[in-house]
Design a protein around this nucleic acid. Sequence first.
DNA 1: ACCTGAACACCGTTCAAGT
DNA 2: ACCTGAACACCGTTCAAGT
Lengths: 192, 192
Amino acid sequence: MPTPDRTSLAQIVEAAREILESAGLAGLTMQAVADRVGVRAPSLYKRVRSRGDLIGLVADATLQDMGARLDAIPTGADPRQDLTELARAFRAFAHERPAGYRLIFDWGPETVKLDQASFVRAAAPLLRIAADLAGPEHELEAARTITAWANGFLSMELAGAFNLGGDLDLAFEYGVARLADAFIGTRPAAIG
Amino acid sequence: MPTPDRTSLAQIVEAAREILESAGLAGLTMQAVADRVGVRAPSLYKRVRSRGDLIGLVADATLQDMGARLDAIPTGADPRQDLTELARAFRAFAHERPAGYRLIFDWGPETVKLDQASFVRAAAPLLRIAADLAGPEHELEAARTITAWANGFLSMELAGAFNLGGDLDLAFEYGVARLADAFIGTRPAAIG
DNA sequence: ACCTGAACACCGTTCAAGT
DNA sequence: ACCTGAACACCGTTCAAGT
């Protein structure tokens, strides 16, 4: 006679995300997840191949959330303003889920293998803005310059690596403003 | 009768650095370090408080190497060119010691607590260039914008997070060039 | 004073036995 | 078909006993 399910993959991933944010990656143990969903640790292996696999699912879920958030930002006529809004939303998301954020961008492939499709979707809004700012032939390089800056800023902010004092909100706004200007000269002349 | 020393702190840190680069942070076990220096694992605790402590020493040694490398770069009359050289040297260092680099910038305070003084020294060359490019009153913000971009680029490059194809060397050069231009407009007018 | 074997707590993971 | 206790290998770390 089969046993009724006492948990689910979705519940396990959700529990893992909460533990990650409250206890860090080192605190994300199979034991802790099992406790939270109400089973014994070995039972988790019925739904998940390994701890690394579970971490990958957590990262992907976070990346998908991020993609949805960035996709929902309305865009207007001014690409400089659009970039500012996008960057602020990116930063807000990183502040809300710092451990999840770092799992995506910082912990790297040693711990996580992300899904290509989720990445492409999260990058889409920025690619549109980059094309507006730098022209379509420099779209990818411009998007990479912006992503590198934004991710680098957040990585260092979350890691406490900006340890020379000063105002970080101001430094962030300064950075977006400089980047918004940086591509203008490279754009092909407008028609007419 | 005292036993002769069979290893030293310097030897332990050096062994740890090599293991880190060849086996990753997960492979950097006390056992592996002990094997390499020729003692048993418990003996390491005579010179090192804990594994976390050893990781911190590895990170700091790497950061000091980086500072020395960046400090040795000759600077000329053109701050744009100086920035380009500095950025290339930064990238070259990251490519030589990817795991050590990531220990400094990416793995964060969960694993590592860096020495403030080492950081200040490594940042000095960039601060000089930033003051030249953006003017002294925006020195810190400009330096942070550049650091964020450079670190973000390298983090993502090393993590394989640039997965949309394209030429990364080109994207890097494009980024430095944009950043070198980005501050010009904000500088106070030259005398005369 | 440094080194060692033995031991402890805590991981991830496997598996035979239950229902 | 899912769940569990028991067990295994492997960590970091402590400590009493050696020299």
